[in-house]
């Protein structure tokens, strides 16, 4: 896809995010907006995914011979759901059910409701990198050359299990794995530097044996360039970590630059102000 087309998709996804969160008056817009460009770049351009002749995605839980994406920081479910719907896994109208009773779009992603595109429940933090390693190990056993992608938050790096997984992947040469950290510098109680200083995450992962690369996660051109680079680095004996600099709330000016919009829904007025900044490109749900 052309960069401009991807940007158009991202604008629609951001509209979906703020409308979904407004619709149920709960959820996590900040991180969702920050990670929109990455998920659009992956699902609309860089991941190899199965689809039928009409473009509807074919969901295979085992992900055989296709790339797999795991969302470890499950609270940014709005962006995940929007991208899954917009890329053809389920009808976009279902986005209106987000966080409502009897919805398949639970507050945090789950396989429990059989929503196509979701392969693991996430929400309790720190578990996705381990799951992604397992899926990558299975691909190796199966002789499947496709890749596994996983996204974590930077606050999530506080969790001890992340570092168990960080130790495992280089030791076992899990080189069909590309992980991302959403480095927005914010977590619920404030800036990560104040709450629990991660210090130099890139240096840490390098010391653990990962190939570390950086990305501007809110610049679609850089996202695509780095995704291509990451893929080219796979299969060389080391797992790949992309430290992705983003702005929480990216695309909506009053949601940016603070942790305030981590888990707060906009009111009617704020919704209108947000949507005014985000062109409707593919048609609202």
């Amino acid at each position: 896809m052309e960069i401009q087309e991807l940007k158009n998709v991202a604008s629609q996804v951001r509209r979906d995010i703020v409308r979904m969160v407004h619709g149920c008056q709960s959820g996590h817009p900040g991180g969702s907006l920050g990670c929109t460009d990455l998920l659009v770049g992956l699902f609309f351009d860089q991941m190899t995914l199965k689809s039928d002749s009409e473009g509807k995605k074919i969901f295979d839980m085992n992900g055989t011979n296709e790339d797999i994406f795991f969302l470890s920081n499950g609270h940014i479910s709005p962006v995940f759901y929007s991208v899954l719907a917009r890329s053809g896994y389920f009808p976009k109208e279902e986005l209106a059910t987000f966080r409502k009773l009897n919805s398949r779009l639970q507050g945090h992603p789950t396989t429990h409701e059989h929503l196509d595109g979701v392969r693991i429940a996430s929400g309790s933090l720190g578990q996705g990198l381990s799951v992604a390693i397992g899926a990558a190990e299975a691909k190796k056993l199966n002789g499947d050359k496709s890749l596994v992608f996983v996204l974590m938050g930077d606050g999530e790096q506080n969790e001890g299990q992340v570092w168990e997984a960080a130790t495992y992947a280089p030791h076992h040469k899990v080189d069909n794995l590309i992980a991302f950290i959403d480095f927005n510098g914010q977590q619920i109680d404030g800036p990560t530097d104040k709450v629990m200083n991660n210090r130099d995450l890139g240096a840490k992962y390098e010391a653990f044996g990962w190939k570390v690369i950086k990305m501007n996660g809110n610049d679609m051109e850089d996202v695509i360039k780095v995704l291509k680079e990451a893929r080219s680095l796979s299969g060389q004996g080391t797992p790949i970590m992309v430290i992705m600099k983003t702005e929480m709330g990216a695309g909506v000016d009053f949601m940016m630059g603070s942790h305030k919009w981590h888990g707060v829904a906009p009111n009617d007025e704020q919704l209108a102000a947000a949507l005014a900044q985000l062109p409707e490109t593919l048609g609202d749900y």
Partner: peptide
């Protein structure tokens, strides 16, 4: 030997990896 995964003293990671292996059709 290729069907065994030593995780070291890291049980949380082991459970997660086991969950991930099922996604490729394995029975961990």
């Amino acid at each position: 030997p290729e069907r065994f995964f030593q995780t070291g003293i890291a049980e949380a990671n082991m459970i997660g990896i086991a969950a991930g292996l099922t996604i490729g059709g394995k029975i961990p």
